[in-house]
Amino acid sequence: MKIKFRLNGKTCCVQASAGENGRKLMQRLGIASVRNSDDATGVTGSDAIRLNGKIVNAGLLVASQLDGHSIETVEALSDGRTLSAVQSALVDAGVVQSGYHAPAAALILTDLLERVLEPTQADIVDAFSGFYTRDSGYQQYFGAVALARERRKNPAYPARVAEEFREDLRDVGTVRRKIDGPQLVLGQKAFVEDRVEPGSCVLMFLRSPHAHAYIQAIDTAEALKLPGVILILTHENSPDVYYTQAGQNAPEPSPYDRKMFNQK
Rank of each mutant, 00 (worst) to 15 (best):
T244R: 09
I108H: 07
E150P: 07
G173V: 05
E75Q: 14
G130A: 13
D257M: 07
N154Q: 13
K153C: 13
D92I: 03
G187S: 14
Q216H: 08
V145E: 05
P253H: 13
D194F: 10
E163H: 14
E252C: 14
D92W: 07
E222F: 02
R177P: 06
A89D: 12
I108Q: 05
I215R: 00
R177A: 13
R177F: 04
A93G: 05
G199F: 07
Y100K: 04
G68L: 08
K4R: 15
D79N: 12
L83M: 12
F191V: 07
S208W: 04
A211T: 09
L51S: 12
V62T: 15
A122M: 14
G130N: 14
P251Y: 02
V145M: 08
A213H: 13
Q87S: 08
V125L: 05
D123Q: 12
E150R: 15
Y242P: 00
R207F: 08
N154H: 10
P158K: 07
Q216M: 06
A104Y: 10
Y243M: 03
S200Q: 03
Q139T: 06
D92F: 04
I3H: 13
L224G: 15
I71F: 03
D257N: 14
L184I: 11
V86G: 09
S78I: 07
N57K: 15
V43K: 04
D168A: 15
G187H: 13
R160K: 15
